[in-house]
Write a protein that binds this DNA or RNA. Structure first.
Length: 879
RNA sequence: GCCCCAGUGGCGGAAUCGGUAGACGCAGCAGACUCAAAAUCUGCCGCAGGCAACUGCGUGCCCGUUCGAGUCGGGCCUGGGGCACCA
């Protein structure tokens, strides 16, 4: 009689044995001699509180790869750490009076225990937390090194300012143009901020994308669009008239209000369609005029209320104001155009000024229509008639033939761009130029819970770096988060700020800004290579050995920023001599996994409900305690805020870690979202039981890999099972290698079905069954490591399936000898023949034409062509 | 608004190079075992028509390329991710 598989006993037992044997420890390069290295890394978590099953997918995927590599003989580095600085800790501090440090470390402790429940093959001796001074000390040193290297500078930047809370707001804290806590309309302010010169590497960051051939194409495309190299022209528009209050232009003074306005355009071919110039609200000229014109000042204020988010600015209704300036058209002195300020012109891109060519740009057209500015089309779409073609509401932005444009008439868009630039250069009114969308990285945050920026402000010496011997600049613990005293607690700390200037020894103040948390996550993968190094961020030789990360796994939401910053940082670290990685690319292969989603539930009072607090009664979802009907909402990403989470502890207790792991990898392709459902859990649970009962029922040691099979195992049903098992080895190996975990799961089901189907206990069948069970245990080991160990032991192997060599398929057993060929007539399947693999074309053709199911469709028609694709298909073309 | 991605039975999905659409799982239906139920096992299971053999239709929508399209191209629709201070 078979006993039930008891995960509550089995899982902790194997975790303890793995830990005792230290099988997850990454070997040093010396210990690993002869082995290839594999660095497998999942994006490390923010310690938000508790782990739910949604988080587990990311780590499980990485774990499958890590275990698979280990079985294939690699020296594996698979570490875990905590992205531990950030806003939620401060929010918790403000809302619940808990110190961010205590909150964070409590969360880390809880989440570490939860993660361990999953049985991940992680080298816990390398755990790091970014909020640990032992970590950020090196980050501060790197900041100083970058500074020395000219990669750090200070610049004024716009921020969202809450005038009631007196604090800077993150974009996410701006809701409908208002501060999320105060509800006050947001203002924009300019603050002096620390910047990283990402643009210094713009060319290389773009060019190197081509070599990242193990990254998803979509991510590579998003990266290159983000960097956004564009070829275009600068055009200088001379002032024809300006208000008298603008002072006359003194010779040689740069950026003077009466200087020609510099505009960047990618479409100089449409210059003859220009109908106005538009400046950004914070263009120097707009500001200069606002000083004298209340309506312009009001316009700037209205724009400020939109916040700093590009999405919000571009989605807002277009509005502008005529600045009362007239400029001369670069190709015709007598042609004057008005200059406006407009909310949709971004000061952060190009020169912060554009020329509006309404027929060829939708935003310009909307703006021209709103303010009744005249315009005419200059690009004729292919096939359109110049005499009748007009543009009213829809701009034509594609290529066409230029007309209404004097010397450009008749040229294609591409030729006209060249010709127009030539002319601009000849007239001294412009030049060809390359423009980047990529901006430098503003890293200053006016917050407490982040890495302090190691700089000191001295009245005499200016901004001075903290000497390296004084690092770390540690965060003070004694801070308060009173609601009535908002802003950065470091700013109002009584003593922490006050220091002596390292340069002159006089009284000076510490920088109170901290670093963007993206900085913390831009080098953690390098720290993992040598996490306990006190003298340096990491030993150069160790970083050289382990980097780049061979497999990085994380969410697509990081496809642009985090990955770009990490790529920048790695180049900067290389150029500061910290490591030798020539490519500067931290992640050789990237996989972006989908989210775990779940239905959302709301009580009748509108409060979110946990799934575990609801139940289904008579086909309706009701509240467990009251029986009241529950409103079932959208299927969304598991998140604490919507409570559609399934807690990991409870789940592991009920079903086991293996079921959770198996479930998140089954059914849905890894890159797509997976919906957490009770029925899916049931399927995974049933599979665990089924595998175990087969192993128990077998009740014998299994043959060892490579052991000679008795003759009886190579005929009939036994042979069929052996063939299927060896094909499963090929398929699953290939599926894991290519991140098709859901397909690997399906193949495992097939193998289990086949094992269960083989009845009888003769010598051949026992061998085939034992072999298949051994293979099954090994194939599922990366997915369900605890169950696999238990099976492995029962089949009389030791010590661990986790450290056993990955199975190898016997090519003779895995190979197919015949193949079924569909026969089509005019592309429709009409029959099927079984043919030997590699059968000559002529034979196949004959078989197909003679096929009884096909013949009727060939009567009364002429056969035009017979297409035979070897081992795949036959198509008869007839009419 | 801009950039990127996805869409296949009742449901999750498979089809890896343009070559049998629906592997595998879930749900459902029928049967076996059982006093009964659960569990387990066996079989069926895209839609429409047909007693059946079989026929027609079918991969979000429209158009195209091809002997052949879920897969390639063009145009839409719907959902999701990102847009620089959420991580």
């Amino acid at each position: 009689m078979s006993s039930r598989y008891n995960h509550r006993e089995v899982e902790p037992k194997w975790r303890a044995r793995w830990a005792d044997a230290k099988i997850d420890r990454a070997l040093s390069p010396e210990e690993a001699k002869g082995k290839k290295k594999a660095y497998v890394l999942e994006m490390f978590p923010y310690p938000s509180g508790r782990i739910h099953v949604g988080h587990s997918r990311n780590y499980t995927m990485g774990d499958v790869i890590a275990r698979f590599r280990r079985a294939n003989g690699y020296n594996v580095l698979h570490p875990m750490g905590w992205d531990a600085f950030g806003l939620p800790a401060e929010n918790a501090a403000m809302e619940r009076g808990i110190h961010p440090k205590g909150w964070t470390y409590d969360n880390i402790a809880a989440m570490r225990e939860q993660l361990k429940l999953l049985g991940l093959a992680i080298d816990w001796s390398r755990e790091i937390a970014t909020c640990d001074p032992a970590y950020y000390k090196h980050q501060q040193a790197m900041f100083l090194a970058f500074w020395k290297k000219g990669l750090v500078y200070r610049k004024k930047q716009k921020v969202n300012w809450d005038p009631v809370d007196n604090t800077v707001l993150a974009n996410e804290q701006v809701v409908d143009g208002k501060g999320w806590r105060s509800g006050a309309p947001v203002e924009t302010r300019e603050l002096e901020q620390w910047m990283f010169k990402v643009t210094a590497y713009a060319d290389d960051l773009l060019a190197a994308i081509e070599k990242l051939d193990k990254w998803p194409d979509k991510v590579r495309l998003m990266q290159s669009n983000w960097i956004g190299k564009s070829q275009g022209a600068k055009v200088w528009w001379e002032i024809a008239h300006a208000p008298d209050f603008l002072p006359p232009s003194p010779a040689g003074e740069p950026n003077h209000a009466r200087d020609p306005i510099e505009v960047y355009t990618t479409r100089p071919d449409t210059l003859f369609g220009a109908s106005f110039l538009a400046l950004a609200p914070d263009h120097p000229l707009t500001k200069a005029i606002a000083a004298h014109r209340p309506d312009v000042a009001k316009f700037i204020e209205d724009c400020a209320r939109l916040g700093t988010s590009e999405a919000d600015i571009e989605k807002a209704e277009k509005f502008g104001v005529d600045l009362g300036i007239r400029v001369k058209h670069p190709f015709d002195e007598s042609w004057e155009l008005p200059v406006w300020a407009a909310n949709f012109v971004l000061s952060t891109y190009g020169t912060g000024a554009i020329f509006g060519s309404p027929a060829g740009d939708q935003r310009d057209l909307d703006f021209a229509n709103k303010y009744k500015l005249p315009f005419k089309p200059v690009v004729l779409p292919p096939g359109a008639d110049a005499a009748t073609y007009t543009v009213t509401k829809d701009a034509f932005t594609d290529d066409g033939v230029i007309y209404n444009s004097r010397f450009l008439d008749g040229l294609s868009t591409r030729d006209a761009i060249k010709r127009a630039i030539e002319e601009l250069v000849k007239l001294g009114r412009g030049e060809a130029t390359t423009q980047w969308r990529l901006r430098d990285w503003g890293v200053s945050r006016q917050r407490y819970w982040g890495c302090p920026i190691p700089a000191i402000h001295c009245a005499k010496c200016g901004v001075v770096p903290v000497p390296e011997k004084d690092l770390p600049v540690a965060l003070p613990d004694d801070v308060t988060f009173d609601k009535d005293k908002p802003g950065n607690p470091l700013d109002r700390h009584p003593t922490w700020r006050n220091v002596k200037c390292p340069s002159c020894g006089g009284d000076a103040q510490r920088e109170t800004d901290t670093l963007d948390t993206f900085v913390d996550s831009s080098w953690y993968f390098a720290r993992f290579t040598d996490p306990n190094n006190e003298a340096a961020p990491f030993d150069k030789a160790l970083a050289n050995y382990w980097l780049p990360v061979d497999q990085y796994v994380g969410g697509v939401e990081h496809a642009v920023l985090h990955l770009l910053y990490a790529r920048f940082f790695t180049r900067a670290m290389r150029d500061c001599g910290l490591l030798d990685l020539q490519s500067g690319e931290p992640f050789a292969s990237l996989f972006t996994q989908g989210m775990v989603v779940h239905e959302t539930y709301k009580s009748q009072s509108g409060a979110w409900l946990l799934p575990e607090d609801t139940d289904i009664k008579d086909g309706k979802r009701v509240e467990l305690t009251t029986g009241a009907t529950v409103e079932v909402g959208a299927i969304e990403k598991m998140s604490k805020s919507k409570k559609n989470v399934v807690d990991l502890d409870a789940f592991v207790n009920d079903f086991g870690a293996d079921v959770a792991r198996w479930f998140v990898l089954s059914d849905s392709p890894p890159e797509r979202d997976v919906e957490w459902t009770a029925s899916g859990v049931k399927g995974a649970w049933g599979f665990v039981q089924r595998v175990w009962s087969l192993v128990e029922a077998h009740g014998r040691p299994a043959p060892k890999p490579g052991e000679d099979a008795p003759a009886a195992a190579n005929e009939g049903e036994a042979l069929a099972l052996r063939q299927l098992a060896h094909r499963a080895v090929q398929s699953v190996t290939d599926d894991i290698e290519n991140f098709r975990f859901n397909v690997a799961v399906a193949r495992s089901y097939e193998l289990v079905n086949a094992i269960a189907k083989l009845k009888g206990d003769d010598e051949g069948k026992v061998f085939a069954r034992g072999e298949a069970l051994r293979i099954l245990s090994q194939l599922i080991a990366p997915f369900m490591p605890h169950l696999a160990e238990e099976c492995w032991e029962k089949l009389n192997f030791a010590p661990f399936v986790a450290t056993a060599a990955w199975p190898v398929a016997d090519p003779k057993l895995a190979a197919r000898t015949t193949v079924s060929l569909p026969i089509q007539v005019n592309g429709k399947k009409r029959g099927e023949v079984e043919a030997p693999v590699g059968a000559p074309e002529a034979d196949v053709r004959e078989l197909a034409l003679a096929h009884p199911a096909v013949k009727p469709f060939l009567e009364g028609v002429t056969i035009r062509k017979v297409i035979v694709v070897p081992d795949r298909i036959v198509n008869i073309v007839a009419n």
